[in-house]
């Protein structure tokens, strides 16, 4: 028979326990929120990927891999995923070189660089939804862009910017670039200002020209930061959602949906059609989430090379 040995001295709350308790109390709202409003919904959605679920509990049933099988033959879904990559491929090669050029120009001893920097960042403080409204207005058929281009003589006829897929995609790219190029200018500037001055002094002594210095010294030294910026840019672009929903909402004919905006429009509560199979939407969100996470992680892995340049 075992005898439970009681602690001879009644244990009082020590200082350490008190500290622990206080720390947990301060963190409690976030722990509750994390479990209840982050983890539980995630598990719910992942589980529902194997169910037919339309909000009515009597209709809910386990369907095995059916949702996933349907997903792999769902042309509309893969089209939106392809669109998302198209969007990234159109946007990043325009945005980052522009940002880099502006950062180089602002990194000189010029008057008013602070002012330019502030103004370049200005679009980023505007709500994405409002940006979409502004661009919907200026690229309207009767809008200022058409009118100005006709006045200058670039266009003879006003262009219906939301009439074909590619034109609408370009409007999205322009709006999104407008919003975020200033951020990248600031990132690039921060990276350049981290490069010690004596590196440049050494270049001067060696008689290197401006372009040589830039391509042989500045850019390689910025490589680690460049990698971060490129990754942020890729992630941000692949997640594009709000802008598409408000600016084109897929127009024309659902052809400009990115994957996030497509799932949102089709399966978010209140926007989804009544009786739609949310389980299918969950499967879609799960596959998309995994694809995007894989891209991010594999990018991080392979881009280690960028880090090794210096």
């Amino acid at each position: 028979m075992k005898i439970a040995i009681k602690n001879p001295v009644r244990r009082r709350w020590g200082k350490r326990e008190k500290y622990e308790l206080q720390a947990y109390i301060m963190l409690m709202p976030q722990i509750i929120g994390f479990l209840l409003f982050s983890i539980y919904p995630m598990i719910w959605a992942i589980t529902k990927s194997w169910y037919f679920y339309n909000g009515i509990s009597s209709d809910t049933r386990f369907v095995g891999w059916e949702n996933f099988i349907r997903l792999f033959s769902d042309g509309e879904y893969w089209q939106t995923l392809a669109n998302t990559f198209l969007f990234a491929i159109m946007k990043i090669p325009i945005e980052l070189p522009i940002a880099l050029l502006l950062a180089v120009l602002l990194n000189q001893k010029l008057k008013g660089t602070g002012f330019f920097r502030t103004m370049f960042y200005l679009p980023h403080i505007v709500s994405t939804a409002i940006i979409a409204l502004v661009f919907a207005n200026i690229f309207n058929y009767f809008g200022v862009i058409n009118a100005l281009m006709q006045k200058i003589g670039i266009l003879e006829q006003p262009v219906d910017w939301f009439g074909t897929k590619m034109k609408a995609m370009w409007v999205l790219v322009i709006a999104d670039t407008w919003k975020s190029f200033g951020v990248n200018v600031l990132y690039f500037l921060a990276a350049m200002q981290n490069i010690p001055e004596d590196v440049y002094d050494a270049c001067k002594i060696d008689g290197a020209g401006k372009f040589t210095v830039f391509f042989k010294v500045t850019l390689p030294l910025m490589a680690p930061v460049l990698q971060v910026i490129l990754m942020l840019s890729i992630i941000g672009t692949l997640q594009t959602n709000e802008l598409v929903l408000v600016l084109t909402n897929g127009a024309p004919g659902g052809s400009t949906y990115t994957v996030m905006s497509y799932i949102f429009q089709k399966y978010a509560p209140g926007l989804a059609d009544v009786g739609v199979n949310v389980g299918y939407g969950c499967a879609m969100a799960l596959v998309t989430g995994l694809i995007l996470a894989t891209i991010t992680l594999s990018y991080q892995r392979y881009s280690q090379k960028l880090n090794d340049i210096y």
Partner: peptide, 22 residues
């Protein structure tokens, strides 16, 4: 670590259903 994980994986809009249920 658990909190940091939130930055890397998200299920997006479908998680609003369980939020509303809660």
């Amino acid at each position: 670590l658990a909190f940091s994980m939130l930055m890397f994986f998200s299920m997006g809009s479908v998680t609003i259903y369980p939020l509303l249920q809660t």
